[in-house]
């Protein structure tokens, strides 16, 4: 199966969905009792209408633009090159996992896991990289807790 796309096409479709969804959510998300013509919902509504309009223009631009990338959906797609392009996804997942475990594991443990994980991710082989990074976590904890009076979790 062939898929032709460009960034305008994807962005246009994405923001059209976001714009319409948010527009539908306005009554439930902005419960204003103001009676004047201009109230708390005026600017958000105006912006969302603009977003929908701009997304449609972008979508049309994407459709009309002849420069499109072509992808054939098949097993060949699962090659080393494609997988390498997905590498930032691992980095993102590490960050998300960190954000999830932070309230439960606390700053020190979760940060030790993340920062050393990042070094492993980049394939760092020097042991003292791990020492420097781990030491930095304790330094950050000390600086924020004692010098800036911010009690890290």
């Amino acid at each position: 199966m062939k898929i032709k796309y460009n960034s305008n096409l994807i962005s246009g479709a994405l923001f059209l969905v976001v714009g319409i969804t948010m527009r539908l959510l306005v009554p439930s998300q902005i419960k204003t009792y103001e009676t004047s013509d201009i109230n708390a919902a005026t600017i958000p509504m105006l912006l969302l209408n603009m977003l929908i309009l701009l997304s449609i223009i972008l979508l049309i631009q994407g459709i009309c633009d002849k420069a499109k990338k072509e992808v054939i959906l098949s097993k060949k797609l699962l090659n080393k090159e494609t997988l390498a392009k997905l590498k930032p996804l691992i980095y993102m997942l590490m960050l998300l996992a960190y954000g999830m475990i932070l309230p439960y594991a606390g700053f020190t443990i979760s940060s030790l896991l993340l920062s050393n994980g990042i070094l492993l991710y980049f394939g760092a082989r020097k042991w003292w990289f791990y020492v420097i990074v781990s030491a930095n976590i304790f330094i950050a904890y000390y600086v924020f807790s004692n010098l800036l009076n911010v009690a890290l979790p």
Binding site: F122, A140, P153
Partner: peptide, 29 residues
């Protein structure tokens, strides 16, 4: 790679310090 691992930590600590909330760290991510 060393800078990347260190910067992440200071980003998180800085984000947390604004509201003392782990929720805002997740929002930032």
């Amino acid at each position: 790679e060393l800078m990347s691992a260190i910067i992440v930590i200071y980003c998180v600590a800085g984000t947390f310090s604004s509201e003392a909330s782990t929720f805002h760290v997740l929002v930032s991510i």
